[in-house]
């Protein structure tokens, strides 16, 4: 199959199922060149994706949930995971809890409470995002997952690991690992 036809098929599949046949039929009927057909289809997809953004709800989801809630939840959950990891490593290596001034019971209470809170906030944030986004859900959902991916998901882990290796090889000054957005951007921008 030619690249142009393959692209046309892929773009058509992003449309609603009831629209796909009509669009394929129109393209065949008008005997357009592949390039023209691709341009027209991309225009149609963009116009259809822009349609739901004419109301205020997807914007509220983007500005109110994807941005602040996504970033803050990423930071809070990264903090909880760090505390949990410190305790787990101390137990595993030395058989004692890491003492930060709290009793063992308080440490457990604080970890359980923070974990439950993050789960609860995340579910509510996701539910509100799904409710508010409507047909703009694909854009907002992707951005929300991207926030997680960059701030506390695999990308953040990769940067942490890279810095650990570079520190171990004395290729970087021994500074605290990046934990907030400003540090994250600063270290990510280092050559």
């Amino acid at each position: 199959m030619k690249l142009g036809q393959w692209l046309i098929n892929k773009i058509t599949r992003t449309l609603e199922p009831e629209l796909q046949d009509a669009v394929v039929g129109d393209v065949a009927e008008l005997k357009m060149s592949d390039r023209r057909a691709i341009c027209e289809l991309v225009g149609l997809v963009v116009r259809r994706q822009a349609q739901p953004w004419k109301t205020w709800r997807p914007w509220l989801a983007l500005v109110g949930i994807v941005g602040p809630v996504g970033v803050l939840l990423s930071r809070i959950s990264a903090g909880v995971v760090t505390s949990f990891s410190i305790q787990a490593i101390a137990y595993w290596k030395y058989g004692v809890p890491y003492s930060s001034g709290l009793t063992e019971a308080q440490e457990i209470e604080s970890l359980v409470c923070f974990s439950l809170a993050v789960i609860c906030w995340s579910w509510v944030g996701g539910f509100a995002l799904g409710t508010l986004s409507g047909d703009a859900f694909y854009v907002n959902g992707t951005l929300f997952c991207l926030v997680w991916f960059c701030l506390c998901g695999p990308l953040q882990m990769l940067i942490y690991s890279a810095r650990l290796v570079l520190n171990a090889l004395h290729l970087m000054p021994h500074t605290a690992l990046p934990h907030n957005l400003a540090q994250f951007i600063f270290f990510a921008a280092l050559p």
Binding site: S77, V81, F84, I119, W123, V124, G126, F127, G130, T131
Partner: peptide, 25 residues
């Protein structure tokens, strides 16, 4: 792994439930 359990999974569950038309009473 733990970040996925704490943040990503509950968020996706919430989004899916909202998308499937589940209503909170």
């Amino acid at each position: 792994m733990l970040e996925t359990l704490l943040f990503l999974l509950p968020s996706i569950t919430g989004i899916r439930q909202a998308r499937s038309g589940r209503r909170l009473g």
